[in-house]
């Protein structure tokens, strides 16, 4: 069988990186992702399988090692594993109480960190991202310029920003634009 070079994953902003005195932005390494939809029971069951409870409160996330579960909607979670392959993550069989869809390649992530991270994001995101309104561990789907994104606050001054693959050059350019004003 002919083989293509599929050992590595490639996306439009792979390897992008920028840093100034206030903020650093970099394209995150490829990750495994599941869009997980479920009834409350389904969510509980899958949490056991993952050994990570899925968050039940709006806007929250849970994480353990390289695995994170983000509350997106009342029956929707985004599961991200920055290390393990998708096969290890996906539930083995279908279940009437949930639906897991592999979206590993649908999304591209950026890591935005530094004292100016919040300002960088606020150039294009209308949400209140102050620590009091969006504390560490907060997760939300929102809008970034004209692109839909998922935002996860991983630390006081660090965020993970996920967007759809084809929007990543646009989101990158917006982040670079925001980084310019990050010190303000």
């Amino acid at each position: 069988m002919a083989k293509a070079n599929v050992a590595t994953r490639d996306n439009p902003t792979s390897g992008n990186r920028l840093a100034n005195a206030s903020v650093s932005i970099e394209s995150a390494p490829p990750a495994s992702r599941i869009s997980f939809r479920a009834t409350p029971k389904g969510a509980k069951d899958f949490g056991k399988t993952l050994d990570l409870d899925l968050p039940v409160k709006p806007g929250q996330s849970t994480s353990k090692s390289t695995l994170s579960a983000l509350w997106i909607g009342p029956d929707e979670w985004l599961i991200i594993d920055t290390k393990n392959p998708i096969d290890k993550l996906m539930p083995r069989r279908e279940n009437a109480n949930f639906c897991a869809t592999d979206i590993s390649h649908r999304n591209v992530a950026f890591i935005v960190s530094g004292n100016g991270a919040e300002n960088t994001l606020c150039a294009s995101c209308p949400r209140d991202l102050s620590l009091s309104a969006f504390p560490v561990g907060s997760a939300s789907r929102t809008i970034f310029g004209k692109a839909e994104v998922v935002l996860l606050r991983t630390g006081k001054t660090s965020f993970r920003l996920e967007c759809w693959r084809s929007f990543s050059p646009y989101v990158w350019d917006l982040l670079v634009d925001g980084a310019h004003d990050a010190h303000i």
């Binding site: 939809r37 009437a96 390649h105 649908r106």
Partner: peptide
Amino acid sequence: RVWLTSTSEQ
């Protein structure tokens, strides 16, 4: 009991 997921870019 149905769930919809966009996979356009997957």
